[in-house]
Amino acid sequence: MELDIYVVDAFTSQQFCGNSAAVVPVEEWLDDSLMQSIAAENNLSETAFIKAISENHYHIRWFSPLTEIDFCGHATLAASYVLFNQIGVSGVLRYSTGEVGDLEVKMTSDGQIEMSFPNQMPQELPVVPQALLQGLSIQPIQILKNRQAYFAVLPSEQDVLNVKYDSEKLKQLAPFDVVVTAISEQYDFVSRYFWPANGGDEDPVTGSIHSGLAPYWAQQFNRAHLVAYQASQRGGLLHCCVEGERVMVSGRGVLYLKGRLFV
Results as ranks from 00 to 15, higher is better:
Met1Val: 11
Tyr6Ala: 00
Ala10Asp: 01
Ala10Arg: 01
Gln14Lys: 13
Cys17Lys: 11
Ser20Leu: 00
Pro25Gly: 00
Pro25Val: 04
Leu34Thr: 15
Ala39Met: 13
Ala40Phe: 09
Ala40Lys: 15
Glu41Gly: 02
Glu46Ile: 05
Ser54Gly: 03
Asn56Pro: 12
Tyr58Pro: 00
Ile60Thr: 07
Phe63Cys: 04
Thr67Phe: 05
Thr67Pro: 09
Gly73Cys: 10
Gly73Arg: 07
Ala75Glu: 00
Thr76Arg: 13
Ala79Trp: 13
Ser80Gly: 09
Asn85Asp: 10
Gly88Gln: 11
Tyr95Leu: 12
Glu99Gly: 01
Gly101Thr: 12
Val105Asp: 11
Thr108Leu: 09
Ser109Glu: 15
Asp110Ala: 06
Ile113Val: 00
Met115Ala: 01
Ser116Asn: 12
Phe117Lys: 09
Asn119Pro: 04
Gln123Met: 13
Val128Phe: 04
Leu133Ser: 00
Ser137Pro: 12
Pro140Tyr: 14
Ile143His: 05
Lys145Tyr: 00
Phe151Ser: 01
Leu154Trp: 08
Asn162Ser: 15
Val163Gly: 02
Val163Met: 09
Tyr165Val: 11
Glu168Arg: 05
Phe176Met: 03
Val179Ser: 05
Thr181Pro: 00
Ala182Val: 12
Phe189Glu: 03
Ser191Asn: 02
Ser191Val: 11
Ser191Tyr: 12
Asn198Ala: 05
Asp201Gln: 08
Glu202Asp: 04
Ala214Thr: 13
Trp217Pro: 07
Ala228Tyr: 06
Tyr229Ser: 02
His239Thr: 02
His239Lys: 14
Glu245Asn: 13
Glu245Gly: 05
Arg246Asn: 04
Met248Lys: 14
Val249Ser: 07
Ser250Leu: 00
Gly251Arg: 08
Leu257Met: 13
Leu261Val: 13
Phe262Gly: 04
Val263Leu: 13
Val263Met: 06
